[in-house]
Every structure is written in C-alpha cells, then in structure tokens.
C-alpha cells in the first residue's frame, strides 16, 4: 500500500529536517510511542501502543535511516510487528521551502499483514492518515510552529475488484 502525505509546517526547512532527525522529538511525536531506544547511529527501536479508540495493539519495531541528504530528504526503512499484524516498508521524506514555511512530502510504501489486513482493510488507509496527521500536529508543536497543519493525503494501491489491473 502506498500512502502519500503532505503537510505544511510554519518553520524553515533546516529546522524541520533536524527535528525529524532528532530522536527526542520523534519520541514525542510518534503516535503511541512508549519507548524509543538507540540501536546505532542510523537505527532506533520503538515500542508503540497504537490504534484508534478501543482498537489498540502493541507493536515493536525498528526504523533505519537511509539516503540522508540534509536538509532535503531521507528515508526510513520500517519493520514492526504485533499480535494483530505487521508493517514493513519504507517512508521517503522530502522537505521543500515554501516561503516562510516548509512543505513535507512523505511517501510511504508499506506492506501490512496479519489480522489488521484481513479484517481492517477498509480502515487501514484512514487510520494511517489519522496517525500521520497526529504526528505532524505534534511535530509542529515541537518545533514551536503554529499547530495548524494542512494536509493532503492520498492512499492507493489497494487492489480494487472494480478495477483489477489484471483485467484490463
């Protein structure tokens, strides 16, 4: 599943870039983060209690930073799992200057499996958006920018019986 997210944060991009690479800030902004520990320079481990409303699960995983290009872009390789499923994939982050503010584009390409994929497919996209929205709201707050996070999100690549590419 591909999840494309964009957000505007009213802060210069150097600021945003370093915040996104600051593990203290990440610990604070990652939704449901209960523990964030360093593995090495590029990799950290997280324990999350994640979900919405009563549908919560505990997940453990790692994020490894790749292709670091300050202050423009980097990629996280993600790998996490819990009792209700797993998530693996990458999230590529680009930051652009837009006047006074910065525009963050995040393109995640993730594989979701287990019970959450089997029974929650209709909600996964929406949950992912909500979590990213929460993340950027916190990020803006951490940077000290106005909390007004405008976002434009897109989810695609769910196979759709109405438009199965195999059939075209």
């Amino acid at each position: 599943m591909k999840i494309t997210t964009s957000a505007a944060v009213a802060a210069p991009r150097e600021h945003v870039f370093s915040a996104l690479n600051d593990r203290g800030v990440l610990r604070r902004c990652i939704p449901g983060c209960e523990e964030l520990t360093d593995v090495d320079e590029e990799t950290f481990a997280v324990k999350l209690k994640l979900g919405v409303a009563g549908i919560k699960g505990k997940y453990a995983g790692t994020a490894t930073r790749q292709d670091l290009l300050p202050p423009e872009s980097f990629t996280f390789a993600l790998d996490g799992k819990g009792k209700t499923g797993f998530v693996r994939g990458t999230a590529a982050v680009r930051i652009e200057t837009q006047g006074e503010a910065s525009r963050i584009d995040c393109e995640a390409d993730v594989q979701i499996g287990g019970a959450i994929a089997a029974v929650g497919s209709r909600l996964i996209g929406a949950v992912a958006r909500k979590l990213t929205r929460d993340f950027f709201r916190e990020l803006a707050d951490a940077i000290g920018a106005p909390p007004d996070v405008s976002d434009q999100n897109e989810i695609d690549a769910l196979p759709d019986p109405g438009r199965d590419e195999r059939l075209e």
Partner: peptide, 13 residues
C-alpha cells in the same frame, strides 16, 4: 473531501 478507498469502492466512486 478526502475520500476513503477500499476494495469495495474507490475514493472516486
């Protein structure tokens, strides 16, 4: 409106 999409209905539909 930012629409949901799943195997039953695309955002467009």
């Amino acid at each position: 409106v930012e629409a949901l999409g799943d195997i039953h209905a695309s955002p467009e539909y």
